[in-house]
């Protein structure tokens, strides 16, 4: 993998919490998933990489630019598309006006070129037909697509998406995944999520974070492989399991160290993720 984004020893403390603890990573072209539970440090890492907040220690580079300098930070921002976890909108703007506004913030001052770009990105996310509609009248999924369109303005080489599928219904989520997959062609995308399906369907690489540290970095297949031979089914919850939950068949699916003679199951990405977090969780489903 040719690294387009690299980070080394990023640390950031706020209050009494170490939000990032010596985080180092390498990203390449395509979609990389950033998995982790709430409070793992995903959003903090994304904000640091997006230059929204500076790290206390460590360094990183984006597409060869060093954000540690004023000129380098400007170059990073010119190469960046950022979709925050809760994108804010000027509610009275239309979708077109909002994207146009973001384009101004991205230094597209020529009116004709700016409007052309706004049309392009709105078309890319399938919102051409509602571009004149006020944002407050759009559905949640459409607003999220407006925010993605804004992030795509200027054809950024590095796209940072913070939990973009949260709150979307299954159909909207599928539509959004298609858009992210398209966006990942030819650019580096870092996608924060706590949904393993997002990673399984979209990502060629995955990073697992917990408590401010990176617990795993590799391919989804490698994460799944971590659970090989460590997933089994049982009629009742197995107390020796690190995590266990009832499946649709009524049987329990357990992950951890299986007892002798256990009925082993094919592992999934979720199993590998749970084992990586090394948490003793019980989920009743």
């Amino acid at each position: 993998m040719i690294a387009t984004v690299t980070a080394s020893g990023l640390s950031l403390r706020y209050g009494g919490t170490l939000a990032l603890d010596e985080v180092s990573l390498r990203l390449g072209e395509g979609v990389t998933g950033l998995l982790g539970p709430n409070g793992a440090g995903k959003t903090t890492l994304l904000r640091v990489l997006a230059t929204a907040v500076p790290a206390d220690r460590g360094s990183f580079s984006v597409l060869g630019h060093d954000p540690g300098t004023t000129a380098g930070r400007l170059d990073v921002r010119r190469a960046l598309g950022y979709l925050p976890q809760t994108p804010g909108f000027h509610q009275d703007f239309s979708a077109f006006e909002f994207v146009d506004y973001v384009a101004i913030l991205k230094e597209l001052t020529d009116r004709t070129a700016r409007h052309r770009e706004a049309r392009r990105v709105l078309e890319a996310v399938g919102l051409s037909d509602v571009r004149g509609k006020r944002i407050k009248r759009l559905s949640g999924g459409m607003r999220q697509r407006v925010a993605l369109a804004a992030a795509l303005v200027g054809d950024p080489g590095f796209l940072v998406l913070d939990e973009p599928t949260v709150g979307l219904d299954p159909e909207q989520r599928m539509r959004f995944r298609e858009l992210i997959a398209q966006a990942g062609e030819g650019r580096t995308v870092l996608l924060s999520t706590h949904q393993t399906e997002d990673v399984a369907m979209l990502c060629h690489r995955v990073i697992v974070m917990d408590a401010g540290r990176i617990r795993f970095e590799g391919t989804p297949a490698e994460l799944t492989e971590r659970a090989a031979g460590r997933v089994w089914s049982s009629a009742e919850r197995d107390p020796s399991a690190r995590a266990g939950w009832r499946t649709g068949t009524g049987a329990f699916r357990n992950v951890g160290d299986p007892p002798a003679g256990a009925h082993l199951l094919e592992p999934t990405l979720e199993d590998g993720y749970l084992l990586t977090l090394d948490a003793r969780t019980e989920v009743a489903a």
């Binding site: 804010g88 509610q91 973001v102």
Partner: peptide, 18 residues
């Protein structure tokens, strides 16, 4: 206060200018 604050902060336009 500014709903687009987070997007503004990471935009190339200098925050002071805005």
């Amino acid at each position: 206060i500014d709903p687009t604050y987070e997007m503004s902060v990471v935009s190339p336009m200098h925050g002071f200018r805005l």
